[in-house]
């Protein structure tokens, strides 16, 4: 479980998060949704200890992320931020292999090789495994980064807009993989996501944020309500049930 307790964060004088408290259940996929500037990415970075809060605490699996050793946390949670400029010329297989670093610290064992191949296969990267990152398209590079995060094989997987640059096929594939990891392996993926219909289809739990605070938090079916989503995005949104799934019409 991820326990967020009265978290505050500010950049200069502008307050980004104000007294945010929420609990994200273990073994379920949570989608963080909300308008631009709601503080979604900031909250994700705080959970992943990439930045430090001004106040409050966050616990992941009972570990206070501010006080737990970084290499211990690296075996519990993995995070991929939205923008990743990688200047190094690495082969895809090498990059994905660095996902094993928290476990074997540069002394790879046989199991590492299997894990790397598993992650490459999941993201359909095997044909490009020996290419350099700068020889790939934007979407392929994004998949390589996600494969590295999956290769880290942590219980908590935090992804900030992972569907960036991905086509329909790979978006759907990634969401299925993450859902499967949650339901079958008991992992906890937490995704910041803009396409709310991907959230509707695959997430078990929704954390809706607006203006630096929690707007709503609960099971997907409960959040996908006309009035709630319309108020969240300040846009008229109608929810239709299509083949037993909520589908948000917003244009």
């Amino acid at each position: 479980m991820i326990e967020i307790d009265r978290i505050g964060f500010a950049i200069g004088k502008s307050e980004i998060l104000n007294e945010v408290s929420a609990q994200l259940p273990r073994g379920k996929m949570t989608a963080i949704i909300g308008p631009n500037g709601a503080g979604k990415s900031t909250l994700l970075s705080l959970i992943a200890r990439l930045i430090s809060p001004a106040s409050g605490t966050i616990r992941v699996d009972g570990h206070n992320v501010q006080q737990t050793a970084s290499d211990t946390l690296a075996r519990i949670l993995a995070v991929l931020r939205q923008e990743n400029v990688i200047a190094s010329r690495l082969r895809v297989r090498e990059l994905v292999g660095f996902g094993r670093f928290p476990h074997t610290r540069g002394q790879p064992d046989a199991q590492d090789g299997e894990k790397i191949q598993w992650a490459l296969d999941l993201m359909a990267l095997s044909p490009f495994a020996d290419r350099f990152l700068d020889q790939l398209s934007g979407g392929q590079r994004q998949r390589a980064l996600i494969a590295m995060i999956l290769c880290q094989d942590t219980d908590y997987i935090l992804l900030d807009e992972p569907l960036n640059n991905l086509d329909l096929f790979h978006s759907r594939k990634l969401m299925q993989v993450l859902q499967d990891m949650a339901h079958r392996l008991g992992k906890t993926p937490v995704l910041v996501i803009h396409d709310i219909n991907y959230a509707a289809k695959y997430a078990d739990n929704i954390l809706a944020m607006k203006q630096g605070g929690i707007f709503a938090n609960g099971p997907t079916q409960a959040i996908f309500e006309d009035d709630l989503l319309s108020a969240l995005f300040d846009t008229p949104i109608r929810i239709h049930q299509i083949e037993g799934q909520p589908f948000a019409m917003h244009h």
């Binding site: 200890r49 990439l50 970084s70 995070v79 928290p102």
Partner: peptide
């Protein structure tokens, strides 16, 4: 960020 993520 990547370095922190990998616990370096």
């Amino acid at each position: 960020d990547m370095a922190l993520n990998l616990g370096l």
